[in-house]
Design a binder for these strands. Structure first.
Lengths: 347, 347
DNA sequence: TTCCCGAATGTAATCGATTACATCGTTGCG
DNA sequence: CGCAACGATGTAATCGATTACATTCGGGAA
């Protein structure tokens, strides 16, 4: 901001209202501590001067930035962008701004340093982003910092860090069971990435459901993916190259499911005619893709809102959550066109 | 941030390096002004103490936040999220953070106040968001503020505000001409919203191309939209209800094109068999939708990067761009499956 | 009437980095 | 040898809001 005239400060307001700056400050943060008459005078002065608080000064004094930092691997993915929307909205309601960082890939130390230790942000909303919450925790501990973090992952949550997650394993199992209900037994899985050396929960859910139903896990049908479209296309090619193909595929997320279906189609194999596909997330596109996508809906907006609320609570209570909370939100099966029942002959 | 031990300040570093805090500050911001020997000593002390600058103090003193504010109507739209990604990356390179605001819908005054005048952000990246850059300019002028803003719109840019835009009108005309090349003459348009009382450039481009080719503008084929899927679906229904339908449709953006194609399909009308559709943006989905979408590719990443660079330049040069720059980036026609040529009989 | 108490308000220190200005020591030149 | 000039560094004021502590004032109780 380049100002051609100076912004009014709290002193200017005080002068105009004929009180001290302390009183103005009180009117603004603890109105009940000031007599009604003065309060009105001050409020009028605030209006007249067009005063707006200087956040930098406030932050310096209070050691608080009223700002959250959200980190996601790739905001470009519609999955995260809806969450971001919710985060911003919720934060705004509580008077916080939202800084966004992406996939920094640098060491967490420098990173945290830049944002958190420098009074730029008061807490961290972690939606992946190559930061292992456990590492973070360790780092913070070594530095003698108690760092407000809320994580939202699809791996099992780090026990030491407050988290808000979907029940990925259960939801994955539900998806797979739905395919079974449709008569499928030859079921494959396009997996998500393995992050932070933790098992992928959706893969676990898949394995769990298959095993529980006494169905074989065919390694050729379990493909590595990265939750993106190209991965889906590559997986489709891999499947097309097989002589024996699955009749149904559980894809780790919608993006990769779209890629997969597209890849199949390029090879002349149609979904759901030849292969049923179920996704995960229920992004906006799922409803209008062709075929419309059967998927497990994640309550993305809720994820964002709940995570934000929790983070602000942690920040404002100024309590180290020695016993972190793990909120688990349910996912919902959304049935659409991309899955079909096999008839009695198994076709 | 809750600290269990205090963060090292510049004083601590000074103490350890046996110099004054002024010298430490110099080493950090103007190393050449300090002798090599002292410089090394200070750098070592910085490392030893794990010092990281207190942004709030710096901001207070320098009246600068090293932060940009990006405003977009709806980050959930993949169009904006890719831009955001680029903005964040570019800003980070220059040492800036990115605050994100959405569709506030409040009056620009209060809004600006909260962010810009309060030393929270140094400049504004405006990707719509219900703020008219002209209003902003006026507001700022009245307040005696010179406000660094870069806008990226699909309306004609406000002459007073620096902007980085795609050449929407030319690109729209190009899209329409392509449809004509394929033999289409009955061409409709699913328009974008009218914002800030300015004509929609893509609509203008459409009209321009039609008129130039002496083709009639059928009002029943020019439908209002909002750049979103539901609008596309609604438009499809409207078209389906007509006895005489266009053979090709130019949709204002990809999102609405997807909705439109989907809506057609629900009514048993296939794209491109019955109606060709061309979109605008080239979002990630365009490449794997079924049919894959012919569209005008906007250089979204470039938009984000260029806008960010320009904004930072404005901020750092501390110059009021009395003669604002308007960067225009070209769009590119991407031909895919959703458009087909009519044969000689016009089918 | 005097004294105490509490509500309302003021005074001034404080947060941490930047920077104008002052100081000190060298070097170079007349 | 003396002094100017310059480079390196230190001193201290400053940015604007918060808040611990001090002050003032009025009312009620003894």
């Amino acid at each position: 901001m380049v100002l051609t005239r100076k912004t009014p400060t709290i002193q200017d307001v005080a002068l105009r209202a004929q009180v001290s700056s302390a009183t103005v400050s009180r009117v603004l943060s603890a109105p009940e501590r000031v007599s009604e008459k003065t309060r009105e005078r001050v409020n009028a002065a605030v209006r007249d001067t067009g005063y707006s608080i200087n956040q930098a000064a406030r932050s310096l004094r209070m050691k608080t930035a009223r700002t959250l930092l959200m980190v996601a691997p790739n905001i470009g993915n519609p999955f995260y962008s809806v969450i971001l929307d919710a985060v911003i909205d919720e934060a705004q309601k509580r008077g916080y701004g939202v800084l966004v960082g992406t996939n920094i890939g640098l060491d967490p130390g420098r990173w945290l340093t830049d944002y958190l230790l420098s009074t730029r942000a008061d807490g961290l909303l972690l939606f992946h982003g190559g930061l292992d919450p456990e590492d973070l925790h360790t780092f913070a501990r070594e530095e003698g910092i108690s760092l407000p973090v809320v994580a939202s992952y699809d791996e099992p949550p780090a026990p030491l860090v407050t988290s808000v997650v979907t029940d990925n394993r259960a939801a994955a199992a539900r998806a797979v069971r739905y395919l079974m209900q449709l008569g499928h037994t030859k079921i494959g899985h396009l997996a998500g990435p393995v992050r932070n050396n933790r098992p992928n929960e959706r893969l676990l859910g898949f394995e769990e459901a298959m095993t529980a139903a006494n169905l074989p896990l065919n390694p050729a049908w379990i493909l590595p993916g990265n939750y993106d479209q190209p991965g889906g296309i590559a997986a489709a090619r891999a499947i097309l190259a097989l002589t024996e193909r699955p009749t149904a595929m559980f894809c780790g997320n919608d993006e990769s499911a779209f890629g997969f279906i597209h890849g199949l189609r390029e090879g002349g194999v149609e979904c759901p005619r030849d292969i049923s596909v179920i996704g995960f997330d229920d992004v906006g596109q799922a409803e209008i893709y062709h075929p419309t996508l059967t998927t497990m809906r994640q309550p993305r907006e809720d994820l964002g809102r709940v995570a934000t609320r929790r983070l602000i609570d942690i920040i404002e209570k100024r309590e180290t959550p020695t016993d972190p909370v793990h909120v688990v939100l349910p996912a919902e099966l959304i049935i659409r066109e991309s899955t079909r029942a096999l008839d009695s002959s198994g076709r």
